[in-house]
Design a protein around this nucleic acid. Structure first.
Lengths: 341, 341
DNA sequence: GATCGGCATGGAATCGATTACATCCACGCG
DNA sequence: CGCGTGGATGTAATCGATTCCATGCCGATC
């Protein structure tokens, strides 16, 4: 592979001049510029990003550590992050933590070893020493979706509180009184926030929320199935189940099907995170939709602001309830049959 | 951030000795080793991967250029690639081409600029000059899922030919005679292979395949919708539609729903690529399943073999038909209600 | 006691870029 | 005509590692 030295030799100038042309420094003669560009073309020269990074201490790369790539919500997030980053001249390296703190640490470490310019994290847990150290240690960082309390890092997320209240209102309006929830890990902010919002909304409607109706999941499908089976085994099973993420909703659906029960006739189901497949499930699933793409883009903008020395602030966007048929009584208009992209 | 020089100073040895300890070179005294390790610990030193890469000309990084991350099939592929790579000591940088040749080229170029050790590609098209040049230029490379004919690069893929024949047999057995196909781009090998296999199978069963029943899609949901609308507008619409990827199947489902038609009563539907959501759609969709995880792992092994100087060969694994209810007449056993992971 | 082999270690070159500093030259002005 | 100014260019230091080569020392061998 041709190096800058080869280009310099070919063009009959020094490497400094080549470098100046490449970084369009003002003081280069027109003659030198064309000679260099011709040589670049002739040799098919491409600057070595590794060498450049070593010298400039910038990699133009962002790290994205995500809780679970197989979760369509995070896939979409990752996609929008990459798009916005590309638009701003950055590449993205994605690390999939698979909801495992050890894997999360592994990815943070290798990303730091690679000297990424900034880190976007959706933390799986309350914060390992490594994560906390990184946040304090000056690496530009932004939390997206989930965050770690007590750490001075901007957070870009959706607030589902109002939407959860709308959901409870919706269920209440349909006559459901015994509502159960499949919660996410308490160590995650989204996990605790969603159940808290649910609790408050239940209280608001004067509905009891017995412990038996609070199932502990881990944001993976299998836990949704397990918890739902527990609900169905109760002497008095709930009339509605609210899964706090889409994968657990999928697991819940599995469990309900396995018993030969029907949604929503036998039991209602709703989910946090709206994904396009929910339109096509049997029945279409009522869900709380986050502005996923906007979240990803805002997170990148906040991070790049930080990297490039500007200040950046936290961003909170609203989530909204999308009513479909899984809680009973179809919505009046047929609009919900459309995909929600 | 502490550098090797700081460690050397702290330990009272030269940088050479520090480097030897870190790369556990045999000839280092026990004394020096412990002094260095203590210093490393004390300073929280981590080697700078950028500098190391510049010197050794190895990044321990693989590039993965994928046609479309939002496609669950590729998401799963990416996940298994990352897992196997991690097990072998490599990181992965994913580039999402979004089925766009220009984006694909963009990612190949930036990956090469970063001097990745090897490239895994699922090409969107027949091969840009850049892609062909890279393949010829000695960068270790492996094609996965799709490939470019006439290029000397190992291919890791699934062979769907037998499964497509099984599908046609299945449809024929259910009494369907007018079968239509939503094909992928002819420029992709999977696109052309699938339609060819379908054609052969149709011939085998003595079924005609008029041009009107061959729709041209692009592996994205929207094209599946458009093509299916065309089918439904025909004076004699098909009795069954075979979408050659999961997103186009989703689009087809949209189109069918929009007309108020029902699957499989009014029209049968089958898809290439089995994804876990197909179990939960209304109705569950009959699909051809690829051994996705195994493909990803095999591809990484082949690539790493190449990188590390061993020889590597192409791998072809079989795909298989998973019968559900979308083509009519439920399968006899209820086994298909399980998730296929 | 001189020579030799081998181990531990340090000095310095190197990878491919960027960039501070020095140099040179042309031009304009007093 | 001499000097200052500024633009174009080259030399060399630098980033943080790895690694070749030279050196010094120790014990073994003759």
């Amino acid at each position: 592979m041709a190096s800058i030295k080869d280009v310099a030799a070919e063009a009959g100038v020094s490497v400094a001049t080549v470098s100046r042309v490449l970084n369009d420094h003002p003081s280069v003669s027109e003659d030198a510029r064309t000679r260099v560009l011709t040589a670049v073309e002739a040799l098919g020269y491409r600057p070595n990003a590794v060498a450049r990074s070593l010298r400039t201490d910038q990699t133009h790369t962002l790290g994205l550590v995500i809780s679970d790539v197989m979760n369509p919500y995070f896939t979409e997030l990752a996609r929008s992050v990459e798009e916005e980053a590309r638009a701003l001249g950055y590449s993205v390296i994605i690390g999939n933590a698979d909801e495992r703190p050890d894997l999360q640490d592994h990815h943070v470490r290798t990303l730091l070893d690679r000297r990424i310019d900034g880190l976007l994290v959706s933390p799986t847990d309350g914060g390992s020493p490594l994560m906390l150290g990184t946040a304090r240690g000056g690496t530009p960082m932004v939390f997206v979706d989930r965050w770690i309390p007590g750490v001075d890092v901007p957070v870009v997320r959706a607030d589902g509180r109002a939407a959860v209240r709308d959901l409870v209102a919706h269920l209440h309006g349909l006559g459901h009184r015994r509502l159960a929830i499949i919660a996410g890990p308490a160590a995650t902010t989204t996990g605790s926030e969603r159940i808290e919002a649910f609790r408050e909304a239940m209280a608001e409607y004067g509905l009891p929320l017995p412990d038996a109706y609070i199932g502990q999941g881990d944001f993976q499908a299998e836990s949704g199935r397990r918890v739902t089976e527990g609900f169905l085994d109760l002497p008095e099973p709930p009339e509605a189940v609210f899964a706090t993420d889409n994968l657990m909703a999928l697991g819940a659906l599995d469990a309900i099907r396995a018993r030969g029960l029907r949604v929503p006739d036998d039991i209602a189901l709703a989910a946090f995170d709206d994904i396009r497949w929910f339109v096509h499930t049997d029945p279409p699933i009522t869900a709380i939709a986050q502005p996923t793409g906007e979240l990803g883009r805002a997170a990148v903008r906040a991070l790049v602001d930080r990297i490039e020395g500007r200040t950046s602030r936290s961003v909170t966007l609203p989530a909204r309830l999308v009513v479909r048929r899984s809680c009973g009584e179809a919505a009046s208009s047929p609009k919900d049959l459309r995909s929600t992209t």
